[in-house]
Write a protein that binds this DNA or RNA. Sequence first.
RNA 1: UCCAGCGUAGCUCAGUGGUAGAGCGGUCGGCUGUUAACCGAUUGGUCGUAGGUUCGAAUCCUACCGCUGGAGCCA
Length: 463
Amino acid sequence: MTEPSPTSIKDALQSTAPIDAIQVQGWVRTRRDSKDFSFIELNDGSSLRNLQIIARNVLRNYADVQRLTTGASIIVSGALVASQGKGQKWELVADKIDIVGGSDESYPLQKKGHTPEFLREIAHLRPRSNLFGCVFRVRSRLAFAIHQFFQERGFIYVHTPVITGSDCEGAGELFRVSTIDIKNPPRKNGEIDYAQDFFARQTYLTVSGQLEAEALALALSKVYTFGPTFRAENSNTSRHASEFWMIEPEMAFCDLNGNMDLAEELVKYLIADVRKHCSDEMELFAKFVDKELLERLDFVVDRPFQRIMYSDAVDLLKKSGEKFEFPIDYGLNLQSEHERWLTEKRFKCPVTVFNFPKEIKPFYMRLNDDGKTVAAMDLLVPGIGEIVGGSQREERQEALEENMRRHKMDPADYKWYLDLRRYGTAPHSGFGLGFERMLMFITGVPNIRDVIPFARTPGSAEF
RNA sequence: UCCAGCGUAGCUCAGUGGUAGAGCGGUCGGCUGUUAACCGAUUGGUCGUAGGUUCGAAUCCUACCGCUGGAGCCA
């Protein structure tokens, strides 16, 4: 006897006609007994929705079926028919139910709702919950939409190294990569001799693919990276993780304005794409996570982002009459509370701040003609803060070397990076978009730990 | 790393010095084309850990651990 090949529950529910013989497989969400049969809510993760299975008492193993509990895995064959009950269009009347993997009353996911904090402790089971199923389906779609956006625009996807030798990329603490025996390291003149390490030098996990992406952009014109990034900062907040994914486009012959345009276009594109392709998931977020989510996202897609120079932002903040905990003055970094005021109170929309004082930005950013500011930009969104950070890069060799010296870096250590300016240099720009922060913004989920399947944060690398 | 708050049943929480509680869940029974079903019964605890104060500590004190929120750093 040949079984029909399995149909996803998503496809089954989208059927336009009854199907005599269909097979589905998944995990039991709930089961209710009726007089002569049992209702099983089955979910296979293909969508938020469950398929209602009618298990009649004529089934050979009906006694076992009645003992099925939440969490069990089963394979069901039968007929897809119009549902007699309200609440669903289709249901599956089972001819056969194979119990693949049992479960019992200790299964932690109950019919009742759970807090995200509790579910975080069972990260291996939480994908089976409605909320996390939705988050991870949207995560997948968002990743796809990112590639689609860049590929449609002629960008080349490049892979920059995860292991890097650059330790001065100006972005946070690094995780060391080494095969040296830490209990008995080789030494030279009392110091650990990294010349004997695996790569014959000190190496780290990447904090950014930007420097390498610049090399590729100055050959392929428009490139982007999309990969994991690691920061060893002891940050304990709802929007920092030690391991996260970042998108870094880099464009040759592009100035800061082109850069800001692209960032804005990308953010809007991604929101619109997920709104269109994950409507069930977005409805769930709007209902259970953030009531104002859809309204805010639509507003962001419809309106141009506010662009404001750093110096003007400082003036606005000074004149705001608002009582801030931290001082605001030209030359100081904008604090979270200042960013919040700009996006949430003053403009009520994403804000791109640009042209920052050179003193508070890294060495690779291009010095403006005023000699005081660099062509940097931060895209701030309500509720999250900085979601994009980017700049026009310093393409002039002399100026770049001067920046390095000012940042107490030795240009000799960056020979290859300077070569890019020595041979066929060109104005170029790029930015970094935090993938998880974008996902938080789109889903409304307020903690970065809940948009990563198995999050890594200081003191926590379980699973 | 700093500041604040919280750790009590599987989950969400109440209990503020004197016999450890509720709702939900689970289990059993009833009813039922149900759908966070309904009705009844029942099950459930080293009160985060270790010290201390007290006749007596879930409750007060100290330390540690964990979680949450905020800050710094950033994406």
